[in-house]
Amino acid sequence: MAKKKNISVAVRPTAADHGFNIMVTTFMVLLLIILIVPIWSTIALSFRPANYIGSYLEGMFLAPWKWSTAAYRSLLGNQGFLNSFGNSLKILVMGVATALFLTVPMAYALSVKGVPGKKWITIFVMIPYVFDVGVVPTYLLISKLGLVNHLPSVFMPVALSTYNMIIMRQFFEGIPNDLRESAFIDGCNDVQIMFKIILPLSKAIILTIALYYGVSFWNDYMRSLLYLQKSALKPLPLLLRDILIGTSMNDNLEASAFGSAPIEAIKAASVFISAIPMMIAYPFIQKYFTKGTLAGSVKG
C-alpha cells in the first residue's frame, strides 16, 4: 500500500543522500532477517526427522529432501488434535456470525442522524467501555447463565465489542447523508435504505470487522481456559499450550499417539498448523483490514 511519493524535481544526490539510502536499505534488510529467522526456524524445526543429529542451528539449513513430515502426519492423524481444530472452527463460525448480528445493527442505528435519545444510548454503551470491572464479574455471569462448558462462553462476553462498533459507526457516518436523503425521496423506507443502500457500500468495513472478531476468537485462550473445563471442548490454542508446556500427556493426547516424530518437531508443527488459518486469511486481511481500520481511525 505504500506508494512512493512522486517527486518531479531532480537534483544530483549528495553524499548525505547516499548515506541515507544505504541506512534505509540496511535497516530494511536487517528487519527482514529479524522477521524471517524466527518463522523459518519454526518451520524447519517442524520438519526435523526423528534420527536427526546435529545442532539446532544446522537444522535451520537442513536440505528439504531430508525433511520428514512425520510430525504433521501424526498430528493430523490424532483424534484429540482434530477435535480441537473442530472446536476452534465452531467457535470461529458461531462467534463471527453472532458478533456481526449484534454489531452491524447497532453501529448502523447509532450512525443515523436525528434519532431522539441517541446521546443517552451512546452514554449507556460507553460506561462499561470506560469502566472495566475485570474478569471475575463476567465469570460469575457466565456461571449463572449456565454457559460454562459450552462453546459460546468463549465468544459471548466479547461478541459486541464497543471499539469495533465505534469503528464501524464512524465508517457509516462517513457515507454522505445526501445518499440516504435521495433514497428517502425516491420512496425507500428505512429498511430498504439500510439493506439496499448503506450495507452494500460497506462491504469492506463489515469484512474488516468480521476478520477482527475472527482473529480474536481464533486466538483466544484466556476465556477458553476459564470456561471450557472439559477436555473434549478444548479449542486449538489450549491444546497447543498444553503441547508446548509439556503437559500434553492428558487423557486425549497421549505422547505415544504421536508415533516416531521428535517432540520438538511435534511442537513446531502444531504451532504452524494453528497459524495456517490466519495465514490463509492474511491476504484478505491485508486488502480490507488495513483499509477499513484506517477508514475508521484516522478521519481526515
Binding site: L32, L35, N219, L240, K267, A268, S270, M279
Partner: peptide, 19 residues
Amino acid sequence: LSYLPHFLSWVIMYGILLA
C-alpha cells in the same frame, strides 16, 4: 511480513520463542 505477526496468538508466539 512486518504485520503478519500481529495476527498470530501469543500461544503461537510462545512456540516460536521456544524454537
